[in-house]
Amino acid sequence: MLPIARSELIQIFRNRSVLIANLLMPAAAAAFFIYSRDLLEGAGGLGYIGAVLVFTVGAFSLYATVVTVLAARRQTLFLKRLRSTAASDPAILIGLVLPVSVIAVVQVAVMLTVFAAVSGRPSDVVLLVTAIVAAFLMLLALGLATAGVTSSPEQAQVTTLPISLGAIGVASWIGIAGTADLTWLKRLVPGGSATELVIDAWNGGVPVADSLLLLGPTLGWVVVAVVLAARFFRWEPRR
């Protein structure tokens, strides 16, 4: 697993298009959100900005990059090459997504630290970390599922749009409008309850037990995405 992760990290840093589109652009967008925090705070509060930061990194640096990387490695038969070794399928997958995941975690940690430094600390750091882990797990699993129906890195630019834009849209919808009305709908859409969890963790004022219930729908989406990935993921290009 670790040799695969190491080679994957080398490949990411040598591929400018992946580096710019999936790692630097989200960082730039997040920097913009932090810079415009006074304007955004009026729309949905600090928790909303935190949620948008989490989902911007999660949707692009993690989700879209995972789909792009897996589609590219399948198209070039690199996945088949790895499967001609002694490495197991789970070890190959973990090795491939580990560098992207670590980079996304580092990105979101740096951005939220900067955001906290200029706007104040979140109310519950542990709950915030839990929310981020749950949201990233969901986006990672959705990435594996989407990779199953994405035949090339070029196609990934299209197939990732619904979920990546949808995640940002849901975060904005819930962050700005709250969950007072259409509560269950907002909590059941992918990323909805995770967004609410981030907002609760940052703003505070909600009992932890109530917030933890929001993990249910998020982890439910993880299960759905894993089932979809098991159904659709392919190791070789369709012949």
């Binding site: 040799p3 080679s7 038969l77 090459r81 070794t85």
Partner: peptide, 23 residues
């Protein structure tokens, strides 16, 4: 393999070393 299946962004030595370690 019939088709190479190597990553364009890795070097020759990195490719052989990677597959060697994994086997």
């Amino acid at each position: 393999l019939q088709e190479s299946g190597f990553s364009d962004d890795l070097t020759v030595s990195e490719s052989v070393r990677l597959i060697g370690r994994l086997t």
